[in-house]
Structure formats: structure tokens, C-alpha cells
Design a protein around this nucleic acid. Structure first.
Ligand SMILES: [Mn+2]
Ligand SMILES: [Mn+2]
Ligand SMILES: [Zn+2]
Ligand SMILES: [Zn+2]
Lengths: 153, 153
DNA sequence: CGCTAGTTGCAACAGAGTCTCAATTATGAT
DNA sequence: ATCATAATTGAGACTCTGTTGCAACTAGCG
């Protein structure tokens, strides 16, 4: 539960309050594994009897991101997903166009090259977003025209 | 004007027709330099007296992408931009959060690493999207809290 | 306990893109 | 040149994400 502590600290440090809703939010975020989107989360909260509004979610997720507890993953077409970052470190994603599966990858080398590129262009990097699109092993093997496997995304 | 030829070929190869609207579209796309979004393009077309509807633009830009004439650049928050790829090769982008400037970078090394990562995960890559966010030289120098330069994006 | 700034829910709104449908048109065949 | 037909178009309704204004609430401090 030190994550909750951490968020509490973040809040007070910014003059924000630990409300019932934020508590519910963080509770649920901590219990999700994998990548989730706002509606996933809303569903979970509703199901658990916590009436948190969509607006409140949208207002607070950036806070969780800012506090470092979760990361935002920008998918194509403006879809956003989030994931818990407790103890994990930065990585990027491969997204299957067939079934929506998300694989993760990590490359210190790419990260380093980004730094170099930025230095060269005198650009101050604050973040980046790097996704590989394509087909996962099972979707690729089904047939090169991504036909049948899994739910489409 | 061989670009138009190329697109014509693409069309007939796919059982599609070379309409007045598509001709206007491609004409204007060829004349833009830099990165443009759908409304830019719509504006240009309107100003030139070509009444091409938004729907038609949205329906045809993917065709131009598919034919290889232009590339789509997915910005954050669902904003899409396009750019002519005539004779250029693939590159990725750095986007200034202060003024919206887009810088380009190119890294064969990153491209190679992507291949390796995909091979390792047996993922068949069809594309990728890689943006670095931050502040360009002039925005960064204005002050670390990105205050004053240029139009915000 | 009581104040006050921060928070919430709701519903209206905004931006980007998709879809339906009737009317139009490009193109291959006669 | 004329026809038949499938593709295309414009308009507007619609969807999906996310944002915002506002009145009612509430956490947190004294
Ligand atoms: Mn991840
Ligand atoms: Mn570019
Ligand atoms: Zn898959
Ligand atoms: Zn800038």
C-alpha cells in the first residue's frame, strides 16, 4: 500500500485533496494488470459500487500519470491506454492489428539514440511515444490477410 | 507529374476511378510542402474553388497513403498529419509542445533495432509510429516553463 | 465546528473521424 | 456514341474521446 502513500504525498504537495473518489480510483488502478483504458476502469469502478463519474476519471488520470504511478500509452487514432508502473521501468509497445494484443519491448539503445538525436537538434525531450504496429505470432500465422483470430481492435 | 500517373495506376489496379475530386486532391497534395492536416488541405481546396467535401478527403487520404504518395503522421491526442513522400525516405518526428514545430529525424539504427525486436517476439511489423515530444531550441530557451513563444498546439 | 479552496457529477460541448443514403459519374462493354 | 453498372460524392447525422461550466458538495486546516 505504499503506492497510496505516494499518491497522498503527491496530492498534498500540490494542494490537492484525497477524496473518496481518488481513493477508489487508485485502489482499482492498483488491482488491474495489463493495459487498460478509461472505460475498462469506469466499468470496474461501477461494478464495485463506486460511483465515479467519467469526468472525474478524466480529471484524475493525468494526476496519476504525473505522480508516476501509471503511464499513458497513446495508441493510434487517439485511443489512450494506461498501465501501472509500480516498480517497472519504461518500455514501448507492439500492437497487433489483428487481435489487439499488446506486446512490450525495451531498448536502452533506442532510448540512447533518442537522446543523441535530441542533443544534435538542440531539442529538449520531455517524453516520447513509440509503437510498432503489425501482427502477433498467432494472427500472422492464420494467414497474411489478417482474417480470423480474436476480436478486432 | 509522374506522381499522378502513379496514383492513376494504383487506382485502376484496385478498381477505383479517377474522379475530378481525386484529381484536385492529388494536385494540391503535390503542392504542399511540409506537414499538413485535413483542414489545411480542405482550406486550400476550397480556396482554389474545388468543392471537395470533408468526407471525400477522409475517404481518399488513406488511398494516397496506401499508394505510397504520402505518409500519415499520428500526433498525440488523435491529431493526424500527412506529408508528401515523393522521393523522400522514411523518418520520424520531434514535436515541440511550445510552438508546434515539427522536426524530423532519421535513424537507421532505430529502424534496425525495431526489426530485431520484432523478430525476437515473432511479430510481423507493418509499420510504426515514433515521436519525440519536448521543446525546440527557441521554446526551450524562453524559459523552462514553456511560456511565451509562438502559437501553442 | 466552521471556512474555504478544491472536487464532483451532470450535461452540454468540441474535435476528429465514420457512416448512411440518395444523387451523380467514371469506365468498360455494346 | 450510348448504356449499364459499380464506384463515388456531399450532406448531415452519428460515434467516440475527451473537455468544460456550473451548482452542489467536502476535505483539510485552524
Ligand atoms: Mn506496457
Ligand atoms: Mn516529416
Ligand atoms: Zn494478434
Ligand atoms: Zn517550439
Amino acid at each position: 500500500m505504499q503506492a497510496i502513500e505516494r499518491f497522498a504525498q503527491y496530492l498534498s504537495k500540490h494542494g490537492l485533496k484525497m477524496t473518496r473518489e481518488r481513493r477508489a480510483l487508485i485502489d482499482h488502478v492498483l488491482s488491474v494488470r495489463g493495459h487498460f483504458d478509461v472505460d475498462d476502469l469506469l466499468g470496474r469502478l461501477r461494478k464495485a459500487g463506486h460511483g465515479v463519474s467519467r469526468a472525474t476519471l478524466y480529471r484524475n488520470l493525468p494526476r496519476l500519470v504525473d505522480s508516476g504511478l501509471i503511464h499513458k500509452v497513446e495508441m493510434a487514432r487517439g485511443q489512450a491506454r494506461y498501465e501501472l508502473m509500480l516498480g517497472r521501468h519504461h518500455h514501448d509497445h507492439m500492437i497487433c492489428l489483428g487481435c489487439g494484443t499488446i506486446l512490450e519491448f525495451e531498448s536502452p539503445e533506442v532510448e540512447r539514440i533518442q537522446e543523441v538525436v535530441c542533443r544534435r537538434k538542440k531539442f529538449v525531450m520531455t517524453g516520447h511515444s513509440h509503437q510498432i504496429r503489425g501482427y502477433c505470432e498467432s494472427c500472422a500465422s492464420v494467414g497474411s490477410s489478417p482474417g480470423s483470430a480474436g476480436r478486432r481492435r
